[in-house]
């Protein structure tokens, strides 16, 4: 146990502080086995936590900003450059995905409501 410190400038109080210190030490050392066991488990849990890799933590606002930017890039219309060539069959899948993103945007209510019209338009264009 640590020896008691003398507290400047109250050196004259040291004797009774020493007695308090001794009593506190005696009390702390007299723990029952159940309590000692729980303290030991708590300490072991902390040591296990120490052994883990430090969690990679980013501030919440950084994550929120990054997520907002990602959504803006993929959802906002016109945020992507026009393709330099006509869409190929291989790109049709990607194009369909982009169309889905456009439709899924909450601002494109008119597009959603006229979905059947555009689907019909698409089918007539393909057949004609």
């Amino acid at each position: 146990m640590k020896p008691p410190r003398s507290l400047e400038p109250q050196n004259e109080l040291a004797p009774w502080l020493t007695e308090i210190h001794r009593e506190l030490d005696a009390d702390a050392s007299a723990l029952d086995w159940a309590t000692q066991s729980r303290l030991n488990r708590a300490r072991q849990a902390a040591l296990i936590e120490f052994g883990r890799r430090p969690r990679w933590r980013w501030p919440t606002y950084v994550l929120a900003t990054a997520l907002s930017l990602a959504l803006a890039l993929f959802v906002v219309p016109g945020s992507r450059p026009l393709p330099p060539t006509l869409p190929t069959p291989a790109a049709a899948t990607a194009s369909s995905a982009e169309d889905f993103d456009l439709v899924a945007g909450a601002d494109n209510l008119a597009l959603v409501s006229d979905w059947e019209f555009y689907a019909w338009l698409d089918s007539t264009a393909a057949g004609g």
Partner: peptide, 27 residues
């Protein structure tokens, strides 16, 4: 740990609460 437990016990008046506080403090 023992001194921390006694400090927490003085503050909470309850050993179980004090032990929980000490465990959380260590983590």
């Amino acid at each position: 740990e023992r001194r921390a437990l006694r400090m927490a016990e003085y503050a909470t008046g309850n050993r179980d609460d004090a032990l929980e506080i000490v465990q959380e403090s260590m983590l």
